[in-house]
């Protein structure tokens, strides 16, 4: 465990918990894409298949349980909670699942480290995580403004990705045999997707005005 990895995990944790707590407190999910949240729930469910079979550390197991619990709780709030679900704008959240999920299944089947069920599912989760933010970014573009909630959420997710890249660089130079092309490339693609968003985020922050994304 290095400082980049720990900081990355903590910003990742913060992004999910901030979202969950805010939805719980303000009883609204306005501006949040249910599709992105469902894709993240699938990401955690397919990546952590080893949770009960391979013990890595107490930290690792607890974090996995928190990510699974919080991501499914967010989906439950948006779909089932009698007040929160009314604030979900289904008509704006139109990104099609198939355009994201099918290419990820296809890629995971042909490009993986080992052709076993667990390994293919793990690889699928990496590809899916890389693009799962797309429905949220499309929703942001469509509504053309983001409140603090959505802004902080996407900012924390972006920070998590950037810190993970630093973690990989650190581990590459400090650990023997630490080479993992699949998570690295998927992770870089995911980080690049945030780049565009960050430009506008910082721009609006610098000018101290509400963020407006271009059409």
């Amino acid at each position: 465990m290095n400082i980049f990895r720990l900081a990355g995990d903590m910003t990742h944790l913060a992004s999910v918990l901030v979202l969950l707590l805010k939805i719980h407190t303000i009883k609204s999910c306005a501006g949040i894409s249910l599709k992105t949240q469902e894709l993240y729930a699938i990401v955690f469910a397919t990546r952590y298949l080893d949770i009960f079979t391979d013990f890595i550390s107490l930290y690792n197991t607890i974090m996995k349980l928190i990510f699974l619990g919080s991501s499914f709780s967010i989906v439950w709030y948006i779909r089932q909670h009698k007040i929160v679900r009314r604030s979900y704008d289904k008509d704006q959240d139109t990104f099609r699942y198939v355009f994201i999920v099918l290419p990820c299944i296809f890629l995971a089947l042909i490009i993986n480290e080992k052709f076993t069920f667990k390994e293919v599912m793990w690889t699928f989760s990496l590809y899916l995580e890389a693009v799962a933010i797309l429905p949220q970014l499309v929703l942001l573009q469509r509504t053309r403004n983001i409140d603090n909630l959505t802004g902080q959420y996407v900012f924390l997710l972006g920070a998590y990705r950037a810190l993970y890249i630093l973690n990989w660089i650190y581990r590459y130079f400090t650990e023997p045999h630490y080479i993992h092309w699949i998570p690295w490339i998927a992770g870089i693609v995911q980080t690049l997707l945030y780049g565009d968003f960050f430009y506008y985020y910082f721009h609006s922050w610098k000018n101290n005005k509400k963020l407006q994304l271009p059409a």
């Binding site: 890595i56 990510f67 993970y164 973690n167 650990e175 045999h177």
Partner: peptide, 10 residues
């Protein structure tokens, strides 16, 4: 092990 050295990541 080489194959699993990154599986401790979340």
């Amino acid at each position: 092990e080489k194959q699993d050295s990154g599986k401790d990541e979340l």
